[in-house]
């Protein structure tokens, strides 16, 4: 199994995500710089990390979404590779059109940095298979632009198709229908604002995020 983490100028969760991938896969992910135009041909899992890519210039994730490497990410997603975008990575995925909607400034205007309770809405996806539907988990969030927005028709479609993977169980940032994470149509791309990679080992104080990564590996093993 081959994994990769994309690195933009201003990414700051890339190494945390790399540690999470290595912890569950046993192999170091390839670290792919934003100017690279190619990913390993047999790539199975791509992480788009949190941070402040390109200093959040223009809009969060806007510049990163147009960087050369994202074309390669879109191609890999097309052929079924798993793509996990966390925080700024979620913003990059919406800006690049791999996921619908947009992430607006938090409704309260404040940067929110704390643990939040989430409900696992869809436990059938590759990303959430190790959780139970309706289960409450706690991940940290740390963002200024996490207020998910999409028109009503898009929101209805996401809900109807089971593509709301995670929902905030409390008010966090004003997100439409409390959406914290969504899947693409084919279920192999997940964007989420909370940080599962920050809660994978006992030293983190919580391990709620670990099963997300374990489920992914399990899915890849059974798919191979």
């Amino acid at each position: 199994m081959r994994s990769a983490v994309i690195v933009f100028p201003g990414s700051n969760c890339d190494r945390d995500l790399a540690v999470a991938f290595e912890t569950v896969t046993g192999a170091k992910p390839a670290m792919i710089w934003h100017r690279d135009t190619d990913l390993p041909a047999d790539i199975d899992l791509i992480g788009v990390p949190g941070g402040f890519s390109y200093g959040d210039y223009l809009r969060s994730g806007a510049m990163a979404a147009r960087s050369p490497v994202m074309q390669a990410v879109a191609k890999a997603a097309d052929r079924g590779a798993y793509v996990l975008g966390i925080c700024n990575g979620f913003q990059v995925l919406t800006e690049s059109g791999l996921l619908p909607g947009a992430l607006l400034r938090n409704a309260g205007g404040h940067f929110v940095c704390r643990d939040v309770a989430l409900t696992v809405e869809n436990a059938q996806s590759a990303f959430t298979s190790r959780y139970d539907a309706g289960e409450t988990v706690t991940y940290p969030v740390a963002h200024h632009d996490g207020n998910y927005f999409a028109d009503a028709a898009t929101l209805d479609r996401l809900e109807g198709e089971g593509r709301v993977a995670l929902r905030y169980a409390e008010g966090v940032n004003g997100s439409a229908r409390n959406i914290a994470g969504i899947l693409n149509e084919t279920g192999n791309v997940l964007g989420m604002m909370p940080h599962p990679e920050r809660v994978i080992e006992a030293a983190h104080g919580k391990t709620d995020g670990r099963r997300l990564f374990e489920g992914l590996v399990e899915g890849l093993m059974t798919r191979a």
Partner: peptide, 9 residues
Amino acid sequence: GVLDPQGKA
């Protein structure tokens, strides 16, 4: 209809 916290502030 798109919330503008900056405008509000």
